[in-house]
């Protein structure tokens, strides 16, 4: 099992230092791929855009999810909590591919949203800023990762001893200040987990940018796929994979370090 994982990762690392000429692989070590990845603007654009989109998706998803987790944990009676969690998770048992595609249907020029709003007379001409760009990618991914953010935050909130909140109010803090001084810091482990759970996989997402992203919404995964399957430049694809992984790891570590006081 470990080998199944370690060998591929090692290979991809090795690959990134090789080069390919049509179908033959040259195994002399070279930094050519990395040099190209850093100097050729197209790779830089893809990498930075991926990081940017992932970042925005993460923030949007977590910010949208927190009130839901808070609501279910604090305002739903205990016997109905399971039902709510069940309701939240159900949509995610449907094909991810179809969900991403349906967002295309919803957001498209003749899509559900536009035709609906036109039909109701709210707008006069179709909205175009919501498909085939990064906005569409963000909406779709924020939808796709919703339960993965709600659940860890919910679990962290559930763990908070309710008497701590009463203690805070007993010591003279109002509801809002209790939330910021007690609830939020104690929920941070869940928020941190949720952030990483969204941020790391979204970097590598292929389907959503391809379906709803348009040319300006494509991400690094699409480029990796192109390198591997279309341009027959596996080493370049490998180098990009390594770079993407490295960037994710680095940002995640920085993020963890910045939040270390919450994670004892």
């Amino acid at each position: 099992m470990l080998l199944l994982l370690a060998v591929p990762l090692a290979t991809i690392f090795a690959f990134s230092f090789w080069s390919q000429d049509f179908l033959s692989i040259d195994r002399t070590l070279t930094l050519k791929n990395y040099r190209e990845a850093f100097t050729d603007p197209i790779y830089r654009v893809f990498l930075l855009r991926s990081l940017w989109i992932s970042g925005v998706v993460t923030v949007v998803t977590v910010v949208l999810a927190f009130p839901i987790a808070y609501f279910v944990s604090f305002h739903v009676p205990p016997e109905r909590k399971a039902l709510w969690i069940f309701l939240i998770t159900i949509p995610f048992w449907t094909s991810y591919l179809l969900r991403a595609f349906l967002w295309k249907v919803i957001l498209g020029f003749n899509g559900v949203l536009n035709s609906g709003l036109l039909g109701l007379g709210i707008i006069d001409e179709p909205l175009t800023f919501i498909l085939y760009n990064t906005n569409a990618v963000v909406i779709t991914l924020a939808h796709a990762f919703a339960p993965f953010t709600i659940l860890p935050i919910y679990v962290a909130l559930e763990k908070i001893d309710r008497s701590l909140l009463e203690a805070s109010q007993d010591l003279g803090e109002g509801t809002a200040r209790t939330f910021f001084r007690v609830t939020l810091p104690l929920a941070m482990p869940g928020v941190v987990a949720a952030t990483l759970i969204v941020f790391i996989p979204t970097i590598g997402d292929y389907v959503t940018p391809r379906l709803v992203g348009g040319p300006d919404g494509l991400m690094i995964a699409n480029m990796i796929q192109t390198q591997f399957l279309k341009l027959n430049n596996a080493p370049m694809g490998a180098a990009l994979s390594v770079l993407a992984m490295g960037a994710v790891t680095l940002i995640s570590l920085i993020f963890l370090f910045a939040n270390r006081r919450f994670l004892k």
């Binding site: 591929p8 590598g204 292929y206 796929q225 591997f228 490998a238 994979s241 992984m245």
Partner: peptide, 10 residues
């Protein structure tokens, strides 16, 4: 936590 594309290409 590994992006799936990485698992796939490797």
């Amino acid at each position: 936590v590994l992006p799936e594309i990485i698992v796939a290409v490797s």
